[in-house]
Simulated scan of single mutants.
Amino acid sequence: MDDRQVSRRQILAGIGTVGASGVTLGLGSSALLNDDQLTPSNTLAAGVLDLQIETESGTHSRGSAMIDIDLSADDRNGSERLSLSLPATSNPAYVWGTTSCLDDALASALAVTLSYVDCDSGEPQTVVASGDTFDEFAAALAGGLAIDGDPRTTGRSCLGTDDRLCLELSWTLAETFSGEIASGFALEFVGQQCRSNDGRSSPFVSTGGSCGESEGPGRDISWVSFCAAEGETLRSDGLDFEVDGDTLHLIDAPSSLETVLLKYGTELRVFEDPTGSIFRTTTGGRTYAHDGSTFPGTTPPRSTSTPCPGTCGLKYEIEDGEATLDDKGCSS
């Protein structure tokens, strides 16, 4: 690896679950069969429970929690503790986890470990998965990794409705690495109701491929839409972004932004509660194939003419990297 000036940077790693708009047994369901949020080898099968995640820094979300990984020449180690739980209305569930890919040179220089920890004392217990490189770590989670709902017991247990499962994600940057690369990855945790499953079949359906394999560029973005939260507004002068082929670089956005949509080829990729600043047509969010001008399975039902139904939205047509405001939604 070429030596370059070491500078402080952040990797934004979205640690997420299926949100309220996902498939939730016992709480209502919807078709979510083309979720390509994870590694290139995984899609998310229907029939999963919504898990809640709280970070050590105090953030709590139904959809995703940001983890700031600060790297510098003097500090190449870090960690973040996670607490997983079920909504009060859910039944006990088997826990599964997987990860997206880290698609740059950092993947070969970042060692990652996910461990069980005691929720009260914070004492480490056993390792869930680890790798001397990120790609090795991702390979352990490819296709979905079964996670014990109660590591204190013998055998695999379900996560109880009133219980917490505590994990710690730790990372170390190799001494040989020096440079600055903007990137990130996403861990996702989902659950299967124990009363309906034996916990042997992963909800993440493997379709071949793994991190570290050449994926190639995705299809170019044809239009992008920004949707506000219900009752909120968006204005074009509050957004700053650039589009480069298959990638949206979100430079600045108001706190009212709730959903980012990327249209490419015959598919729509939906990023709910977006975190980070880089959105690609090849990874993250949930994907939906078009049927004419509509995208069956999206909630609320989205279409090319109405990408943000019921909320404020801004839609931009993209041609040769240039964005043209096509629909001002309710911000006009």
Rank of each mutant, 00 (worst) to 15 (best):
R195N: 14
L25G: 09
L268G: 00
T294C: 07
V112T: 05
P300A: 01
T17N: 09
K328H: 13
G184L: 03
T306S: 14
D320V: 08
G218F: 08
S332V: 11
N91T: 14
V243N: 07
V127N: 10
C194A: 14
S30M: 12
D118P: 04
L262H: 00
G297F: 08
Q193R: 10
L145E: 02
D70C: 06
H249K: 13
D244T: 09
G63T: 12
A253I: 01
I69Y: 14
A105C: 12
S72L: 04
D320Q: 14
L167K: 00
S236H: 13
S83G: 09
G310N: 05
G218S: 10
G144L: 01
R81M: 07
H249V: 12
S85N: 04
W171Y: 12
Y94G: 04
R9A: 10
L102S: 00
T233E: 11
L12I: 13
T99A: 15
Y316F: 15
D68M: 09
A109L: 02
P254W: 02
S236R: 15
M66V: 10
G155E: 06
L110P: 02
A140K: 13
N91S: 14
T98Y: 07
I11P: 07
L250Y: 05
T172S: 15
A139R: 09
I278K: 07
L82K: 02
D162P: 02
A88T: 15
D244G: 05
G313T: 01
D70Q: 13
R219K: 12
N91W: 06
S256L: 04
P124Q: 07
D327V: 03
D163T: 03
A65G: 04
L257V: 00
G284C: 00
R164Q: 10
T266E: 15
F185T: 04
